[in-house]
Design a protein around this nucleic acid. Sequence first.
DNA 1: GGTCGCCTGGTA
DNA 2: TACCAGGCGACC
Length: 281
Amino acid sequence: MPELPEVERATALLRDAIVGATLIQAEVLHPSLKRRLPRGALQSLSSTRVERVERRGKHQLVHLGDGRVLHVHFRMNGDWIFDTDDDPLPRFARAVFHFSNGRRVVLEDSRALSTIDVHPSGSDLSLDLGPEPYDSALTPSTFLAGLRRRRTPIKVALLDQRIIAGLGNIYASEALWRAKLSPKLIASSLTLPQARRLLVAIRAVIRRATGGRYTQSENARLDVYDREDALCRRCRTPIARFVQAGRSTYYCPYCQGSEKSKTLSRRPRARRSSGRSSQEH
DNA sequence: GGTCGCCTGGTA
DNA sequence: TACCAGGCGACC
């Protein structure tokens, strides 16, 4: 459940469940996590109190009373299950945390790609992340400045967490569709109006998904992702799929522009009308 | 820059 | 049985 809105939700639930509680015992069940977390490190977590829980991009940081930080990343499939010791373990339980308040927090992850690390007290957690989508310091011009340095297609640049933290493969396609920009556009060739449009679209896509998982819930309906050959909701052109940097990209070949003139880092042609003008933060 | 590996499950 | 998958770091 990996994009920002889902991680935000998971972090909030985690915060509610464990802040102020003491970690009684931590165990990891999957070999890849055991490789990552030596037994001593795990045992040393016992009896530590949870001071606060923080999200940065798609990372979750659990700050412990002794200054150490439990650092969790869900990658593709991770999620928290909140239950108690009386419950049977979920099928794909990969790590289990028992707390003094009776809560049990289980990392469930069918693909077992999630990571957990323990950072020593005082270590600097430079996660190398760009601004959050709603960061007020992120403006069309700072966004554009970030893009200017990148010669990759814009879709690939959007997945780079150093430009904006939290966007993933689904919302990158969704935001580009909403902004009517070709995923093949070279990032450094965007104009300021295009960057503005894209930023508005990113925020709209994130906000629409907030609180809901995008595989469900009406407000999180997807417009292009996983809709190959289905008709574009704007212009009824079949949605196309292709691969960029090893990941599927979905887009409307018609209303997301003719790639040719724009991808060869030439000046884009006159803009289409941007259609939408909802408030942004 | 692009590709691969990490892991395993769901689906065609 | 083969392919695909919401991420990301290591590698060329």
